[in-house]
Design a protein around this nucleic acid. Structure first.
Length: 429
RNA sequence: GGAGAGGUGGCCGAGUGGUCGAAGGCGCAGCACUGGAAAUGCUGUAUAGGGGCAACUCUAUCGAGGGUUCGAAUCCCUCCCUCUCCGCCA
């Protein structure tokens, strides 16, 4: 959420910054509402002060022994009642104004960082660097072709269980997924991250706090009978882990790592990536999340990205780092680096991690502050995948494929998986 | 699901209609004392939004929302949450 004061005092700045995102917004109306809200509050609070004064006066008089039924007291009561009527009318109006204001504020995305490069779309994202040596042989298989041969997962039967875009991992597939989750968690924990295993059913306030609601309701699965949603990312519960808190300055930064299944409706992506592990309604992810002092957030962004990269490097997976331009920036982010892993079977780089700095955007929505001396201020939040597990498995399959149909696995995963390779399954599923 | 108890400041805990943002204690910070510390003493110690250069000041907040009243932490209604016992269950 954007600062209400900024809306009031400098709406043209906001409009200009949102234009960098490709949004054309007229904030004149919103500014008026914000101003109106403040004016109403001012008038109302002045009346309330008057009302309080009368209340105290009556109390004092009665205490001093004046007859509660005297004319003097009666007059004060009348006066009090008159003010109360005025306040009630103002309050009702103010409530409506506040609701409208909040509703509209919650739908505005974060302002892009001054460092975020301008651009209109995905096409204008900037490649920053590459790591590793991508394989480029012809006739490399896609991960779903490989997986079918080895018997790692079953999508057809999963549709029977659920719908399309769900997967059941089988045998070595299931084992490898577990191994990857544990490997990633241990790697991050060894760097000082604190592990959380949060609920995956989250309430509306949580989704609003991190920015998924109210604008992207159609992207999340919702429970019918309860005010609960399936979380689309562990970023949501982690943000709300500290909602409405003031975290002492000396406790920052707080760095969390959390594994969670993630649920996304993927509305509007029908027909895209229909095969394999790339785009599912349910997938596993290990998420990194930082709460930092505002002054430290730029540096933290570099570090959280490096921590995500460390997973790819340990797994010997070639990737590139892409800086997202203003036109492609996520709703809550002010600046983002995507990590894209090389998928030789598909012959493309695919996003496997997105590392964003959200500034005070989520902190304001979730009311998470820090305290330095006497002054409290909103802190900054950052998140990054470390990594999307299904996509990591896809990358391992495509990058590790051998001429004989087996898959060579990186040594880092051996202690977790128990083997350095995968063999085609002899037994049909 | 049934029965009961309860939600007050960073924590504990008092407060059942009148100047209560809220006693007391703990914790924390500063100062004094000390060679240094402990102990002790004094002072301070919520958040948000307005106004003011500032000192300061106004409003709101005692789980949430309504209501009664000149006045509500205190009375009434609704909801949420927590705890205990029983039932059920992984």
């Amino acid at each position: 959420m954007l600062d209400q004061r900024l809306v009031r005092e400098n709406p043209s700045f906001i409009a200009h910054e949102l234009e960098r995102r490709g949004m054309k917004v007229d904030l004149k109306h919103l500014q008026e509402i914000a101003q109106q809200q403040r004016d109403l509050e001012e008038i109302r609070s002045r009346l309330q002060a008057e009302s309080n004064r009368i209340g105290k006066q009556v109390g004092q008089l009665i205490k001093n022994g004046i007859d509660p039924n005297s004319a003097e007291i009666k007059d004060l009561r009348h006066e009090g009642n008159a003010i109360k009527k005025k306040v009630a009318a103002l309050e009702e109006k103010e409530k409506g104004v506040v609701a409208t204001l909040k509703e509209q504020l919650l739908r505005l995305p974060n302002l892009p960082s001054p460092r975020c490069p301008n651009g209109r779309s995905e096409k204008d994202n900037q490649e920053k660097r590459r790591w590793g040596n991508p394989r480029n042989e012809k006739n490399l298989k896609t991960h779903w072709e490989i997986a079918e041969k080895i018997g790692l997962f079953d999508t057809e039967r999963s549709a029977r269980i659920s719908q399309s875009r769900f997967v059941t991992l089988i045998n070595q597939g299931a084992r490898l997924e577990r191994a990857l989750i544990n490997f990633m968690l241990d790697l991050h924990i060894s760097k000082g991250y604190k592990e959380l295993l949060p609920p995956v059913l989250v309430n509306t306030a949580s989704l609003t706090g991190s920015g998924q609601l109210p604008k992207f309701a159609e992207e999340s699965f919702r429970c019918n009978e309860d005010e609960l949603w399936l979380t689309p990312t562990a970023e949501v519960p982690i943000t709300s882990f500290h909602r409405d808190e003031i975290i002492p300055f000396n406790q920052l930064p707080l760095r969390y790592v959390a594994y969670s299944p993630c649920f996304r409706r993927e509305a509007g992506s029908y027909g895209k990536d229909t095969r394999g592990l790339i785009r599912l309604h349910q997938f596993n992810k290990v998420e990194l999340y930082w709460f930092v002092h505002p002054e430290d957030s730029e540096e933290a962004h570099t570090q959280i990205t490096a921590d995500a990269e460390a997973v790819l490097q340990a797994l010997e997976l070639p990737y590139r780092v892409v800086e997202i331009c203003t036109g492609d920036l996520g709703f809550s982010a002010s600046r983002t680096y995507d990590l894209e892993v090389w998928l030789p079977g598909a012959g493309t780089f695919r996003e496997i991690s997105s590392c964003s700095i959200c500034g005070d955007f989520q902190a304001r929505r979730s009311s998470i502050r820090t305290k330095k001396g006497k002054s409290t201020l909103l802190l900054h939040t950052l998140n990054g995948s470390g990594l999307a597990v299904g996509r990591t498995m896809a990358a391992l399959l495509e990058n590790g494929q051998q001429a004989d149909g087996s898959i060579k696995l990186p040594s880092a995963i051996v202690p977790y998986f128990g083997s350095n390779h995968l063999q085609p399954n002899e037994v049909p599923n």
